[in-house]
């Protein structure tokens, strides 16, 4: 990023791009291979039974014939996690913007948000089930709640991050409060909003999985519970692996979208000063 300003005209060739990717990933990939190797050898050497810890290759091979069934559960969990993520972020980011803009409101309700936040979602779950019944409702609500709090906190920080000088500039130009918000504060909040969107990917899966444990009869969280009851460790690993793959892909997509949308970050610290 440090060399961004020197030469904007040359786009790297495909060859150089690939070389760059290899360079970025060689250490983590190397470590992964090492880790899988040690895992495999350890399991073999001590003859660990499959129900305790299967070897990596066993897990991969066990996907055979299971994909159809797994995919059904996956779409259920993705649907819940995605809906919870969208709802939690929409509410969290909007409320954060309003709270940053109206300090009285923030001072009135923020302390209670902090208290609520320190309660684990799982403590809400029985209540949610009483209110909504045993269906997808409480599961989506759990995912929404886990997403909401970090989103709110980031949003407040983002919409408050505009520095004094930029606000004085807008004031000297006779900008309205709405124009200051729309033309300056919103942009300064973007990096924080994306950070909220990224952090909450993992959290919405936590909410969805926990929700399925308590109120689900399908989905990857439900599968994990079933697998646990039957000591079906391979099934458990398959479900975990699928969650890992989708949450990583989701996260990666957000990083891509962010780097495409926010090209001024890093070069200026996101603020209006140098």
């Amino acid at each position: 990023m440090a060399t961004d300003t020197t030469d904007m005209a040359t786009t790297p060739t495909l060859g150089r791009k690939i070389a760059g990717v290899i360079d970025d990933y060689k250490y983590p990939v190397g470590f992964l291979l090492f880790f899988l190797g040690v895992w495999t050898l350890g399991v073999r050497a001590y003859s660990v039974p499959t129900y305790v810890l299967p070897a990596p290759a066993e897990i991969v091979l066990s996907f055979e014939g299971e994909l159809g069934n797994l995919w059904g559960h996956t779409t259920v969990t993705l649907y819940e996690a995605f809906l919870g993520w969208v709802l939690g972020n929409v509410v969290g980011i909007s409320l954060g913007a309003v709270m940053a803009e109206f300090q009285t409101l923030k001072r009135s309700i923020y302390p209670y948000m902090v208290v609520l936040r320190s309660l684990p979602v799982i403590a809400f779950a029985p209540l949610l089930i009483i209110w909504m019944g045993i269906n997808q409702g409480p599961i989506i609500a759990a995912a929404t709640i886990t997403t909401f709090f970090p989103s709110l906190v980031n949003s407040i920080a983002g919409f408050s991050s505009t520095d004094e000088l930029a606000r004085e500039l807008m004031h000297s130009l006779n900008a309205s409060r709405w124009e200051v918000f729309r033309k300056v504060k919103l942009y300064n909040a973007f990096p924080y909003i994306f950070s909220a969107l990224r952090i909450s990917v993992a959290l919405t899966f936590v909410g969805a999985v926990v929700g399925e444990w308590l109120a689900g009869n399908q989905g990857l969280g439900y599968l994990i519970l079933v697998a646990n009851n039957q000591l079906a460790t391979l099934l458990l690993f398959r479900a975990l692996l699928v969650i890992g793959i989708f949450s990583t892909a989701w996260f990666g997509l957000l990083v891509l979208v962010e780097s495409y949308l926010i090209d001024w970050e890093n070069q200026s610290g996101g603020g209006a000063t140098r």
Binding site: L165, A166, E168, L169, K183, V184, Y187, W264, Q267, S268, G270, A272, T273, R274
Partner: peptide, 8 residues
């Protein structure tokens, strides 16, 4: 202003 305060 003392700084340029450009919007990046």
């Amino acid at each position: 202003f003392q700084e340029d305060v450009l919007l990046p």
